[in-house]
Structure formats: structure tokens, C-alpha cells
């Protein structure tokens, strides 16, 4: 039953031809018996996925389960993957992580992308992680823009990490000004997004230090803060900030500004 690659390759090519969308989930499993694969098929029968047909394929040698759901975009596929993970975890069949993607992706052909996905899941470690396959970062990790996030609010950090990584940036997170400065030295990012209210070193002190750091000519600073006073805006720009965004913010706008700054 090692028919995962040919079957999915064929299906994807057909989809591409008919210009219909689908989502693919690859799961690293334990050794599945024929019965358990059948059981999985049964339990995820189409009536629950409400639209589109679901295909299952299992690669015995690589211990990979592939699931393809027709007419699912990435969000649906992601949501579906949550269920798959829970299911496999409960029946103790999960051995590694999950990789998800939706097709057709923009540029390359679906078939080729799928082959790269197969490559990537082999290198994926961890257990039970759900990772969104990004065609960009597998290709050119060197050229990715690196963003350092400095914020004391873990919710901001968590969200922006997820959001900006999906947009193809490489993101590192720091919780306070001191931590931020250390990561800045180690990593020399292309862009820093920082709050002004930070423990230990505040945003101004951090900007001051970045300004006096040797290699700083390259990195841009965006301030993302609750402070809405004109004085703060002025002072931030005086210290070399390239942009000033107040919370609550629109992530779309933030990303647009970031993109403008690094281009």
C-alpha cells in the first residue's frame, strides 16, 4: 500500500487541470495496520466534512498518512488537521508532526510542491506539531527577512509570530528590553518591532542602544505601542524609529508597513 506519492500526485495534477482547490495533510504515524487505515477512513467519512470528497493514502515504508480533502482552503484544512491530530493521538497512532498545505499554491506546479512537502515532513521533528507548509522558506532561508519582536505582552508576541511567519518572515521573540538587546546582538535582524513599555530596558533605552550598536545601519525599527501621546511619537522618530503604530492595530496594515520598509 505504498501508494501515497503516485496517488496524490495524480490527484493533484487532475485538480490543477480542473482548477479546483483542495487541502493536503501529511501525518507521521506509527505503523498502521490495514484495519486502522480503514477505521480512519470510516470515522472521517464525507458526511462530516460537509463538502468535497476525502482521499486517504498510507505510505507503509515511510509511515506517512496522507489525507486530501477536496474543496478545502487552508483554513479548513488546518481545522480538519486539528481533528485528525486529536483522533490519532487518542488512538495512540501518532508518532510525529503534521504538515498541511492547500492547493493550488500560486507559483509552482502542485505536483512539484507536493514532492517538496514529502521532503519536508521527513525533516520535521517534534510531536503533534501542526505546521503550515510554506513554499517560500524551504527554498531560500537565507533571503528571508528577519524580524525581532520585543513586547512584554505574550499575546502580541504569540500572534505576531504566527502571523508574520505565515507571511514568510523569520521571527524571533523577546519579552523585555534587555532580552531584546541580547537577541539583537546575536541575530542582527533586518527589522525590529518593539513596544515602548518594557521591563528592565524600556523601548527608548532599547532604541538608544540599537542606535549605538555598530551594525545597526541595516535594521529598521517599528514602534508598536499603547502610547498615544505626541511626545512619544516625536521622541521615537528622533531616536530613529521608521514607523509608529498604536494598539489596537490592524495586522494587515502592520504587515503592509513592514513590507514597505524592507523593500
Amino acid at each position: 500500500m505504498s501508494n501515497l506519492v503516485p496517488v496524490f500526485y495524480q490527484l493533484l495534477t487532475n485538480m490543477e487541470a480542473s482548477q479546483s482547490a483542495c487541502g493536503v495533510i501529511l501525518v507521521a504515524c506509527k505503523n498502521l495496520s490495514k484495519e486502522s487505515v480503514e477505521a480512519i477512513k470510516r470515522d472521517f467519512s464525507p458526511k462530516e466534512t460537509d463538502s468535497g470528497e476525502t482521499h486517504f493514502a498510507y505510505d507503509k515504508t515511510k509511515n506517512l498518512l496522507g489525507i486530501m480533502v477536496e474543496q478545502h482552503n487552508l483554513a479548513d484544512t488546518h481545522f480538519f488537521a486539528l481533528r485528525v491530530k486529536d483522533y490519532l493521538q487518542e488512538s495512540q497512532l501518532l508518532s510525529g508532526s503534521l504538515l498541511i498545505a492547500s492547493f493550488p499554491e500560486s507559483s509552482a506546479s502542485s505536483g512539484q510542491l507536493f514532492m517538496r512537502m514529502m521532503q519536508e515532513i521527513k525533516d520535521l521533528d517534534g510531536y503533534g506539531e501542526i505546521k503550515i507548509y510554506d513554499q517560500r522558506n524551504s527554498a531560500d532561508a537565507e533571503e528571508q527577512t528577519r524580524i525581532l519582536l520585543v513586547n512584554h505582552d505574550e499575546h502580541v508576541n504569540e500572534f505576531l509570530r504566527i502571523y508574520l511567519e505565515r507571511k514568510g518572515y523569520m521571527v524571533t521573540v523577546a519579552n523585555d528590553g534587555m532580552d531584546g538587546m541580547e537577541k539583537y546582538r546575536e541575530w542582527s535582524p533586518d527589522l525590529v518591532i518593539t513596544d515602548l513599555n518594557l521591563p528592565i530596558l524600556n523601548g527608548y533605552q532599547l532604541m538608544e542602544k540599537i542606535k549605538h550598536h555598530e551594525a545597526s545601519a541595516m535594521s529598521k525599527i517599528v514602534v508598536l505601542t499603547d502610547k498615544r501621546l505626541e511626545e512619544d511619537v516625536q521622541k521615537s522618530f528622533a531616536l530613529g524609529a521608521a514607523d509608529y503604530i498604536t494598539k489596537p492595530f490592524s495586522p494587515i496594515e502592520l504587515e503592509a508597513r513592514v513590507r514597505r520598509l524592507i523593500s
Partner: peptide
């Protein structure tokens, strides 16, 4: 995982 899903797909048209 569910919260990651929420945060990753905040932009698309349909409801979460």
C-alpha cells in the same frame, strides 16, 4: 492547536 488555527487564519473571508 486550536488557538494557533484562530491566529493563523484571521484574515480570510469566512468565519472561524
Amino acid at each position: 492547536d486550536y488557538f494557533v488555527y484562530l491566529q493563523a487564519h484571521g484574515e480570510e473571508e469566512e468565519r472561524l
